[in-house]
């Protein structure tokens, strides 16, 4: 039962299948098996949030799920946000508000913010700060991130 098994997920709308040992983390399955390296791994114990993806439409830590648990699930990652060459509005706002520097936390920030805005309407700044505390950024000091999410929440498509 430690043998590899086949895992099929719908990633960013596309069905993808790979082999995974039961112990393989979803983050590693996405990155190493499916080659989707936009999802980053910063701590592997659920604190930093860099690996956050959407599982069946809700933000979750991909380092705290086994790949086999995602069999049959719909996964959305940062690679699926843009519409062709056009950046998603939140991506544009991150650039506008200088909400990224090294870019390592950015995928987790984006996926967390999208879920947060959908989860809770009429976010106050304090709620944004608390909600975005789910992801650590070591570069920016968060101001740009909070501003980008606030602008998105105030006028963003939900």
């Amino acid at each position: 039962m430690t043998a590899k098994r086949s895992v099929t997920v719908t990633v960013n709308g596309e069905a993808r299948t790979g082999e995974a040992e039961p112990r393989m983390l979803l983050s590693d399955f996405l990155r190493e098996t499916l080659g989707l390296t936009g999802t980053h791994v910063g701590c592997e114990h659920g604190i930093c949030g860099a690996c956050t993806v959407h599982v069946d439409g809700e933000a979750a830590r991909s380092c705290l799920m086994l790949a086999v648990q995602a069999d049959g699930a719909e996964i959305d990652t940062v690679e699926g946000l843009a519409d062709g060459e056009t950046l998603h509005r939140l991506q544009q706002l991150f650039s506008k508000h200088r909400a990224l520097q090294c870019g390592f936390c950015t995928p987790g920030m984006l996926m967390t913010a999208l879920d947060l805005v959908r989860h809770r309407p009429n976010l106050t700044e304090a709620e944004i700060r608390s909600g975005m505390a789910a992801v650590l950024c070591r570069c920016t000091g968060y101001e740009g991130i909070v501003h980008a999410v606030a602008e998105y929440a105030s006028g963003g498509e939900r």
Partner: peptide, 17 residues
């Protein structure tokens, strides 16, 4: 920033990638 686009798209390339 020139850097933003690739990083926002998840197209950055770090050693682990």
């Amino acid at each position: 920033r020139r850097e933003d686009r690739r990083l926002l798209l998840g197209d950055g390339s770090y050693v682990a990638d």
